[in-house]
Amino acid sequence: MQELDPLLQLFEQVEFLLLAGIILVFGYLALEHKDIVYAAFFFGVMASFVAGLFLLLEAPFIAGMQIAVYTGGISALIIFGVLLLPRAQDRTLEVLPSPRARKIGLLLSAFVMAMSGGLALVFPWSTDIPQGMPEYAQSLQGLAEWLWQSHGLYVQIIALIILTTLVGTLALMKMEKAETLKDITAEFGVEAAPMPDDEKTEEATN
């Protein structure tokens, strides 16, 4: 990888600082904005700016996946969760932490941030990008080889995790519904709505 000219180096630093500032401000707003709908939207904005940081780090596919899954999927999920909870949308009903707990938490996390950030700045990391950095097309190629050729089992594990999530979600909701039904005739979790008479007789004859 050839050296960049100084103007581009300065541009990279300015871009990084801008992105980092925006990410931290939106991350803080996503936690602290008093309206929870706005907080969810700010989380989505923060996730899409993190994708910009991934582009600076030479990871185009991760940036695309960040935008597709975090900004497009997870923040939409959180917004739908807020939509389904009318109680959470009302900011006057939100239970806020006591000022003392908030202050202690802020101090604690600021201390941890300062310590770990100071250590990261002091520690002698290697500062250059290595010579064999792949280009854009090669990077996708190498990543695809890593994921689909050498570690194909991980893909199946992801599929199983997604399957478990979907089935578990639906099973939880079904159990909740079965508990609310009045007369449970069969064992737990089975649909227990009263059957019409003609179906009952049909089943008896079978």
Partner: peptide, 15 residues
């Protein structure tokens, strides 16, 4: 979305 991202990686490569 997640499935599309995984398959996008496969289709964008020339494996």
């Amino acid at each position: 979305d997640v499935m599309g991202a995984f398959l996008w990686l496969l289709s964008a490569s020339t494996l």
